[in-house]
Amino acid sequence: MDIQEYFGKCLEIASNPENYKTLLIGAVYSLIVASIAWVMGIVLGIIGASLKLNKNKFLRFLGNCYVELIRGTPMLLQILFFYLIMPTLITLITGNAFRVNKFVVGTIAIGINSGAYSTELIRSGIIGIDAGQWEAAMSLNLSHWDMMRYVILPQAFKQVVPPMVSEYITLIKDSSLLSTIGAVELLYSAQIMGANYYNYLFPLMMAGVFYLVMTFVISSIAKKVERRLAESD
């Protein structure tokens, strides 16, 4: 195949509106995966951070286990664990066949993964607050809850917003790992398209543009939000 023919084929793929629709649907799925996983991650992150900052040694240990286990293994393995190993274990234990929804378990796996990173982000946001703030709140006799709610967390929140946004952007890209288990998202859509056209690379490039647009839009919005947050300081 000469170069002219190759570009002709690319042009054929690029000029078919159906292909954009396919990729757009894939992109929407990627956003759904990333969004659910992100929110899940924040919830798990708050829980994880309160475990890791807890006075109770055992709870701290639990928090550490979660973070180290997840951050110490590739996300791909975690996805495969939830798709392949977990159902096998459940089948072994219950004796009944257990079939999972790839999309759901994949999203859960990514959410649990994100939770470990969010734990560290939130934890460092909280411990990054100047000791004087804790002491001032304490000397003003605020209860622990009021201190967290009105003094510490609002300040931690501001510090945590920028890394949380980049975590979301990371998740949009990481959601592509779901293609390994054949769950629909942007990369998988591009792979299907590649197989149909016997041209693997070009659809991937197109998907790349979609990823770029999504992440660019999100980081632009994030910059505006950050600026507004900074103004209130």
Partner: peptide, 17 residues
Amino acid sequence: ARSKTGFVFQHFNLFPH
């Protein structure tokens, strides 16, 4: 005890937000 005392810090420790 703290309800009876006020404390002023070297670095003020006002809540910046």
